[in-house]
Nucleic acid binder design. Structure first.
Lengths: 407, 407
DNA sequence: CCTCATTTGTTGTCTGAGTGAACGCTCATC
DNA sequence: GATGAGCGTTCACTCAGACAACAAATGAGG
């Protein structure tokens, strides 16, 4: 009904079909299995049009027919079910952490079909790329040969250039200007669409799509890994920035009389609420900092030392809330644990410092997808081309992945 | 070619026509007078389709034919000109300042056809509404009777709720929860679409459309009025936030050991770089604070007292650049003058504190539309429905405005 | 001055996507 | 078991945009 005003391009009817096909598939992806009646209402199109679209997606192998699915509610002939095809398209999601890598095969609907995880040994990019390639081979091992692989989505704890996916800087991996997508592809020996993005951005994406922010068009995912970052969804769109580096909230000025930050400034927010600051406060050894979330989970009650940090989190969030006016702030990474432990301090800090208009409509939330937010966000990103143009995306997807990744 | 993925709705061919008609008109609005050949290239549609669209817009009275417009460049038959109709649709833009109101009648292409301005006497909302209504009557006095008025756009120095245009808080007018749109309509005695928004947001809009940020999809307009705010365009979209209050950068935490801010906190950025801080530094009397930009224009060279403020501006901008990663930052309001005076300090402060990745792609710019940025942004906002659906917008526009506003 | 290539406007036909109405199927309700 | 409601299916219809052919208007070159 409302095509983008910004592209400046006109719409022809080929584009209409693409859009409707993609939108239909997106609906199925979001709701999981659905029915044609639901889709008719959801898309505002005619019954017969929906029938045609579903038929085309069936012939593409993306969805399959299901007789009279679920419990019928009310009178009338039950609507035909539209099910995600069991041997339908999938993506591979990669969550690149500071000390471990998680790889998963994810189907439509966001279901994790297979997963593999390992500790990262060497920190050289090519080593990690080789490790990832091995895990990818693992997770596609049981994929039906008829299932096409649409793409690979990779989450990176650092800044990713949006034009080409170059990793500009991943401080905790000590990577600079690494073309990790190319490295992984080379290690796999195939050519598939690979997309990379910042971990916080992807956390926001998945929580928006199927987590704590469903139906919320303005949300922020605060990522607490070793560094502090944010993914922002505003008006339903990802906030990317000119280069793709938007959301670097860790380096907001917080206390100019504070400690030096690795970025060169004094008293960035990250120096007060980052993993190292928290670890110092609770005397957690430095080598356990990457698992800070698990360490914090070990506490039943908040040690006194964390209270001040809780206030600092709340006060920093206030700036963020003032600037972005989100409806939901999802506390990702170790912020989830922190919010459980020092909720009162965080809430108080936020209430004290946020502007009333922005404060009244915001709420803090735990990630509904738990620790899989970022992983599932990588999957969402990889699926995206499928919802823009299913025919093209499935055309460029690779078939019989198992065989082609054998080497 | 690429309809919005977010709306979730399907596209039917009625919507296609609406979109193409609107997009075509938007092109004409942006480029000013154009030619059918240009539009064919710009929209990626067929020649004959463009011809049909132009014909429909002509019959709607929005554009008119022009034979062989401009200088022909190269061989071939010269393309028919598509001109903005002289008696075409217009909007009324209102720039509500702290101490004055500017009202203008603005035509397609962003041309100011008539303008009126006055000092605001009383600060009661109904008084201001009455004043505005009077100015509106002035600026439509010479409008052709066949020219339809599409709507009224009002810029407000404060927070505007996006759902209904309620002014939640305009600190420098001392307004709380004022339905100013309704007040103006009541004073005018007609019913036209009225839209309100924050001044900084509108500055960003116009600078993006036809100012220093043409072709730039990520820009920030820093508004220096009495308060400090920002309008953000990201990925070509306005950043609004859940309630419409996004961009309140004046209350970013800057110096927790600093002066108290009217918002209740200590050391907000605004307390260091706001109009009152600058006025104090240069010993400008308090009653001249609303005209601080003009006061600053009186300086040929920066007094020493402004240098520290320049650094604070630069350092604060660094936080903003880190968070939004814009390509252009437009220095609106008195920041324009400040940038002329203490450019070195601002640049230095920004360079010192911004992250390299974000810093390398950003540039600061003066508002290309001068002091009309905000006013023209209000016009752009009011025109927006016309580019979404010209037929409907012109249908609900009011004809023969002069007569109907006579009372 | 004439011819040619080039670009665009104009016209009529065609394609294809979504619509809408008629009809039949399947359910819940009484 | 009759009835109504909701849905799938089919087919004719509408209409927006594409496409091809032709006409018109320019600049370049001889």
């Amino acid at each position: 009904m409302s095509p983008t005003p910004r592209s400046g391009l006109g719409t022809n009817q080929e584009a209409v079909r693409r859009h409707n096909l993609g939108t239909l598939l997106r609906h199925v992806h979001q709701r999981g299995n659905s029915s044609r009646a639901e889709l008719t209402k959801g898309m505002g199109l005619n019954r017969s049009t929906i029938a045609g679209l579903v038929a085309e997606l069936e012939s593409l192998g993306a969805v399959s027919h299901a007789e009279a699915v679920g419990t019928s509610r009310g009178a009338g002939r039950p609507s035909a079910g539209v099910r995600i095809a069991p041997d339908g398209p999938f993506v591979v999601a990669v969550d690149l952490g500071v000390d471990r890598v998680i790889v998963a095969r994810v189907g439509l609907g966001g279901s994790v079909l297979q997963r593999a995880e390992t500790i990262v040994a060497g920190s050289e990019a090519w080593q990690v790329g080789s490790t990832v390639a091995g895990l990818v081979r693992e997770v596609v091992a049981d994929a039906p040969t008829t299932s096409p692989m649409v793409g690979v989505g990779i989450s990176v704890p650092g800044m990713v250039r949006r034009t080409d996916g170059l990793i500009r800087l991943a401080p905790n991996l000590d990577w600079h200007d690494v073309s990790f997508g190319g490295i992984v592809l080379a290690a796999l020996g195939v050519d598939v669409p690979v997309s990379l993005a910042n971990d916080a951005d992807l956390g926001a994406l998945s929580e928006h799509e199927r987590g704590a922010g469903v139906g919320v068009s303005d949300l922020i995912y605060i990522s607490g890994n070793v560094g502090v970052g944010a993914g922002v969804i505003s008006g339903g769109h990802r906030l990317e920035g000119a280069g793709g580096y938007a959301g670097e909230i860790g380096h907001l000025r917080f206390n100019p009389a504070g400690r030096p930050c690795h970025c060169g400034n004094l008293g960035c927010w990250e120096t007060e609420v980052g993993a190292h600051a928290i670890a110092d406060a609770i005397r957690c050894p430095a080598d356990k900092v990457p698992q800070l979330d698990e360490v914090l989970d070990g506490y039943a009650k908040a040690p006194r030392e964390l209270r001040g940090i809780g206030s600092a989190i709340g006060q920093g969030l206030a700036s963020i809330v003032n600037v972005f006016n989100p409806q939901v702030v999802v506390m990702g990474g170790y912020f989830d644990a922190m919010y459980r432990l020092v909720r009162a301090e965080i809430d108080q800090g936020l209430a004290d410092r946020a502007l009333p208009a922005a404060f009244e409509s915001v709420s803090l939330a735990a990630p509904a997808l738990g620790r899989d937010s970022v992983l599932l966000g990588a999957a969402e990103m990889a699926f995206e081309p499928l919802f823009i143009d299913p025919v093209t995306a499935l055309g460029s997807a690779i078939q019989d992945v198992r065989a082609r990744l054998a080497g």
